[in-house]
Amino acid sequence: MGRTGTTRAGVRDVAARAGVSTQTVSRVINASPNVRPDTRTRVEAAMAELGYRVNNAARALGTSTTRTLGVIASDATLSGPSAGIAALDTAARDVGHWIATAYADADDPGAVTTAASRLLAQGVDAIIVVAPHTATLPALRGTIGETPLAALHTGAGGDVQRRAAALAVSHLIDLGHRRIARLAGPADWLEAIARDAGAAETLAAAGLSAAGVWHGDWSAAAGAAVAGEVTAALREPDGPTAVAVANDQMALGLIAGLQRLGIAVPGAVSVTGFDDNADAAFYTPALTTVRVDTAGEARRVVADVLGQTADAPAAEPALVARDSTAPR
């Protein structure tokens, strides 16, 4: 049973219940390897019985670490950033850390640096950015000093994004498509840049050029908004027979918009997505897309900011072929 009333259990209470010193309790709290397994079990049981909660601020005074990682995200309503935040939370907990998340308009460097300052005031050990714009990381580097900084899906993760986008375009080429258009993400997002580069490079390697390029804001509404322009392009003699879309949500909107205009997918035009979000298999038609190992990338980034090595590498991206693509 935990304590009743407003008095919270402290380290001394845990030590007394477990029959150990307060130093031993501290070692258990801070995941020190220098604790016998049976002792650790006894201390953890005492903590549970007393309802003891670790005070990160107090622990930081003695250890110079709160075991908390700051995460800055611009939009958790989109499936990609939302999945990234969830993956970072799991990866952090797996190595005995937690995340504190701050949201900021990525178009506003001032909002981003303010978010970073608030996280630093909480004593976070590092900062990880989800879905950064091109201006985000330079702005942060001038704000956070020596605090470790990393971004999900950039650096090595950006190379994964390029390879994944290449898979989608290669799939369309293998199906016989030679006039392939692109619906890219926002031009100043690092992930969008990597995905667009992978698609463009794959077309160029096959001796092809894009049969049209549009940009959206990652939302389904953005995909639907360009459906009229794509429809007009389809009617041109050299119009596209396929569209490689930079994420699943825009692909959903594009397909819905095309169908409202009487354009069959994949009968008249094939469409690919990116992310393989949880709903992609239930689109009409089911969406051909590419899957990236966001959980593995999160493990790599968390290990990087902690100066460690991830216990396993991220899996390579994979094409998931469904019904929204067909041979030309």
Rank of each mutant, 00 (worst) to 15 (best):
T4Y: 10
R8H: 04
V11K: 02
G19R: 12
S21W: 05
I29L: 15
P33F: 08
N34I: 12
V35S: 05
A46E: 00
M47V: 03
G51A: 09
A58D: 07
G62N: 14
S64K: 12
T68K: 02
A73I: 15
S74C: 11
S74N: 09
T77P: 13
A87G: 01
A92L: 09
A100K: 00
A106V: 03
A116L: 06
L119W: 08
A121K: 13
A126V: 10
P132R: 04
T136N: 10
T136L: 05
L137A: 07
A150Q: 08
G155K: 08
L167Y: 00
R182E: 08
L183P: 01
D188A: 15
L190D: 07
A192C: 15
A199H: 06
A200L: 14
A200P: 03
T202N: 11
A205V: 13
A206Q: 09
L208N: 00
S209E: 14
V213P: 00
G228V: 11
E229K: 05
T241I: 11
N247K: 09
D248T: 08
M250R: 01
I255N: 04
A256L: 12
R260K: 12
L261K: 01
G262T: 13
V271S: 08
D276P: 12
N277Q: 08
A280I: 00
F282G: 00
A286R: 02
A286V: 06
D293Q: 09
T294H: 00
A298K: 02
T309Q: 13
A310Q: 06
A312H: 12
P313L: 15
E316D: 15
V320C: 05
V320E: 04
R322Q: 10
T325M: 06
